[in-house]
Amino acid sequence: MSTLPFLPGPRAALLVVAAVAVVAFADLHLSAYAVTLLSLVLLNVALAVSLQLTNGLTGLFSLGHPAFMTVGGYVAAILTYPVRRKGFMMPDLPGWLATAQWDLIPATLAGATVAALLAVIVGVAVLRLKGHYLAVATLGLIVIVRVVINNLDGYTRGGLGLSGVPRLTGPWEVLIFTLLTVGLVWRIKHASLGRAMMAMRENELAARCMGIDAFALKLLAFVLGAFLAGAAGALTVHLVSVITPGAYGIPLAFSLVVMVVVGGSGSITGAALAAVAISLLAEFARPLEEGLELYGLSQVLVALGLILVLRLRPTGLFGSREPAAFRPVRVPGVGR
């Protein structure tokens, strides 16, 4: 029964019920636009929380989420694509892929797995080194992924992008994925694994002296983050039904980092709230940008806001903590 102390409090359970209610309400009563917007916001929450695992809890500095999303998205889209149009759109596919038409869940898992394998390759090369190498290597990875997909046009249709991907993702699939992601990261954070990650973030040398295998732990956090990002990419593609090589790029990497930092490095609640706020801000700023013809204005404002947060409140909204209402319940007699 040693896992009991890590159960979320009753108010966190209420939050889950509330999220389900919101999605059910939107699904029944709101426009298709609102439902898609809600789904994208939820996906951003999942992305920010999964990056929280890598960047927040473990203290790595990965910018690679968009690259993993792109890889996961393309792999899944190729697997679910209608067979009768594959020959025309992707002529170079080998036979077994050209005749395959998978369901959403196996395709999403396949996309996420390929993204995770890519993360293993990059992680093994870079995670033994100081943190900034990871930042630049993942930034380079975004470029590599884009260039390779652009050039493999027999498999991916190159720069034209893949359109007409079946719309298999709905708000419920997104909600389940987001809840699973948040639940997983929550469990990790409040278990010994999360303690070890945070210890390493605070002082790697001291953590290693306590017997923590720093490299293995970093690799785990990085690869798990990539897996979740790959799955999020796969779900997004089947929500918006199109993917292009540059769809997820450096601006997205920056937005996700902002969500983690503003929410507070290590705080799941903080990252989720920041993800909701920043996604909605970006969505509502778009008509304004188009009206004023000042494209990029919201990015500038977000970046300036970020610099202010770093200077005035470097720990973000919540620091590493969760609000008191959501803290784990201590069951008497169990655990410490």
Binding site: N55, G59, F61, G131, H132, A135, P251, F254, V257, V258, V261, S265, L294, Y295, G296, L297, Q299, V300, V302, A303, L304, L306, I307, L310, P314
Partner: peptide, 24 residues
């Protein structure tokens, strides 16, 4: 004096400001 990551993020933000400011 802040953690190293803070500095990266700050320079990344400056880069976003310069690039998008340039676009505007």
């Amino acid at each position: 004096g802040a953690p190293q990551v803070t500095g990266f993020i700050a320079t990344l933000a400056v880069s976003v400001v310069i690039e998008n400011g340039g676009l505007i």
